[in-house]
């Protein structure tokens, strides 16, 4: 564990708390992609199957349980109490391609052909693309509530800090995982346009609005 990874994980945890705060305070899930949230639940469940086989630390176990359960709770919120505030027409990304594409990539690139390892690889490639339905929705709407942009910023910052963590781990431990590094770089790159608008508008107190 290093400081970059710790802060990254805390940003990830913080992003989820911001999303829950948005839902609780506005009693609405408007602007949030159900598909992206569902993809994250699949990502966490397929990645953390090793909860039962491989103990890392109490911190690691706690975070895994938090990510799985909060993702499940967010889906419940969007489907049950906040159902009427969800706009399905804005959430129009063809996510079948992401689910299938990650499957193909996992079968090609997995380190080992065991069930747990292949599902781990699947989760990495699925997470790489899971934000796309949310970004498409943002693009279609052209604007977003400020709290939603803070959520997305925290999520993007978590990914960017993981890259710093990998550089640090390479320098100090000679640890490299090609799959997570490549997928992580692609995933972070997807946030570039969003970061630009966030830094130039939201942080200056203006509304998030696409040019």
């Amino acid at each position: 564990m290093n400081i970059f990874r710790l802060v990254a994980d805390l940003m990830h945890l913080g992003s989820i708390l911001i999303l829950l705060l948005k839902m609780f305070t506005s009693r609405s899930c408007a602007g949030i992609s159900f598909k992206t949230q569902a993809l994250y639940l699949i990502v966490f469940v397929t990645r953390y199957l090793d909860l039962f086989t491989h103990f890392v630390s109490v911190y690691n176990t706690f975070m895994k349980i938090f990510f799985i359960s909060s993702a499940g709770y967010i889906l419940y919120m969007m489907r049950v109490p906040l159902k009427d505030t969800y706009n399905k027409h804005l959430d129009a990304f063809r996510w079948e391609f992401l689910l299938g594409g990650a499957g193909v990539l996992a079968l090609v690139f997995t380190h080992k052909y065991t069930v747990i390892e292949t599902l781990w690889t699947y989760s990495i490639f699925l997470e790489m693309m899971a934000i796309l339905p949310q970004l498409l929705q943002l693009q279609r709407t052209g604007e977003a509530e400020t709290i939603t942009t803070h959520y997305l910023f925290a999520l993007g910052a978590y990914r960017a800090l993981y890259i710093v963590n990998w550089i640090y781990r390479y320098e100090t431990e000679h640890h490299v995982d090609a799959i997570s590094t490549m997928a992580g770089i692609v995933q972070t790159a997807l946030y570039c346009d969003f970061f630009y608008v966030y830094f130039t508008r939201v942080l200056k107190g203006k509304r998030f609005k696409l040019p």
Binding site: R5, D9, H12, D50, T53, H54, V56, N60, M63, K64, F67, H111, K112, T114, I116, E117, W120, Y162, N165, H175, V176, D177, I179, S180
Partner: peptide, 10 residues
Amino acid sequence: QDGGDGHDEL
């Protein structure tokens, strides 16, 4: 340590 079952990142 590279790959395999020992994934220690979240």
